[in-house]
């Protein structure tokens, strides 16, 4: 598999085999207890904390020579973080990479879930900045661990209550807390709450890694994942008035792009692969580049 760009001198996928084994043991435990944060011996990685040191260690430890890797950052394949990590694994592991969601066997993501439905032979790896969902309300980890142990999650509803009291609705739009398998409260890493329903009963294995906090956790395939809410303020996802300006999609998560300093803006799919696939299939939006007509070509 090794291409010319593969660096020599490193073990396959950078980490040594003992470290990968240690992380895999932690991951097995995480899968066995859905949503539970398992401590692991996080290593120094050649990128700064906050850039996906947790996700990259999880990916490195589960990566095989035949895997096809896709890396996205906020849904996009071509942003700095995604490009960096993809190149890191191209160089240290020499595995095949792709931008097409359906071709990938492992998808490392920073803060999005691809729009295309995942399948049973895919693994999602999430980069997690703050694994503890109650961390902002209860700073002591000794306390939050006890709250998890006793499934004492009233505190999280205090936060949601406070949102409604202040804004009239639950104002959390990302990192929206979920209850996994009816037991553990979990931070779904800062994915938009738009993606929360995709966590529920997903056919793909979902792994979460937090490098600085030294925690991994997991959602096994086909596991119940419920977003917390109130009976009279049920959970709902974001909606946009306009379709994607490039591909006309009405069912995807849209990013707002500022076009000029005169209030011009457009909304485009945050999932670049999804948008490209649709454009290739002939879908257009209000800002689609005007296709080269016969006259211009002539």
């Amino acid at each position: 598999m090794s291409s010319q760009r593969t660096q020599t001198g490193y073990n396959f996928a950078y980490l040594d085999e003992q470290t990968k084994r240690m992380i895999r043991r932690a991951l097995l435990k995480a899968v066995a207890i859905p949503g539970y944060q398992v401590p692991f011996g996080s290593r120094e990685m050649p990128l700064p904390y906050g850039w996906g040191t947790g996700g990259i260690q999880v990916t490195a430890s589960i990566l095989g020579r035949d895997d096809v890797l896709k890396v996205i950052d906020q849904g996009s394949d071509d942003t700095t973080n995604a490009v960096n990590i993809r190149r890191f694994f191209e160089r240290t592991a020499g595995v095949a990479t792709t931008e097409r969601t359906e071709d990938a066997t492992i998808i490392q993501t920073r803060h999005r879930i691809p729009e295309k439905p995942l399948s049973e032979d895919q693994i999602m790896v999430y980069q997690v900045p703050l694994p503890e969902p109650m961390g902002r309300l209860e700073p002591q980890e000794v306390v939050t661990r006890k709250l998890h142990a006793l499934a004492d999650y009233g505190l999280m509803h205090v936060k949601l209550y406070e949102d409604i009291a202040r804004y009239g609705h639950i104002a959390s739009t990302y990192d929206y807390p979920v209850l996994v398998n009816g037991r553990y409260l979990m931070a779904p890493s800062p994915i938009p709450k738009f993606d929360n329903p995709k966590l529920h009963m997903s056919p793909a294995l979902q792994l979460f890694g937090a490098g600085r906090e030294k925690r991994v956790y997991a959602i096994p395939p086909y596991t119940r994942v419920e977003s917390l809410d109130f009976e009279d303020h049920p959970f709902s996802v974001q909606r946009w008035d306009d379709p994607c300006a490039l591909c006309g999609a009405t069912d995807s998560f849209l990013d707002e792009v500022v076009l000029d300093d005169a209030g011009g803006r457009m909304f485009v799919c945050s999932d670049s692969d999804y948008c490209k696939t649709r454009q290739a299939a002939g879908h257009t939006g209000s800002q689609s580049p005007v296709p080269a007509t016969q006259e211009e070509a002539a």
Partner: peptide, 18 residues
């Protein structure tokens, strides 16, 4: 808020109606 302070115990014992 004051309301959340009073409501915390209710939510801790399972009240889910805002």
């Amino acid at each position: 808020s004051a309301g959340a302070n009073v409501g915390e115990r209710l939510m801790a014992v399972g009240a889910r109606h805002y």
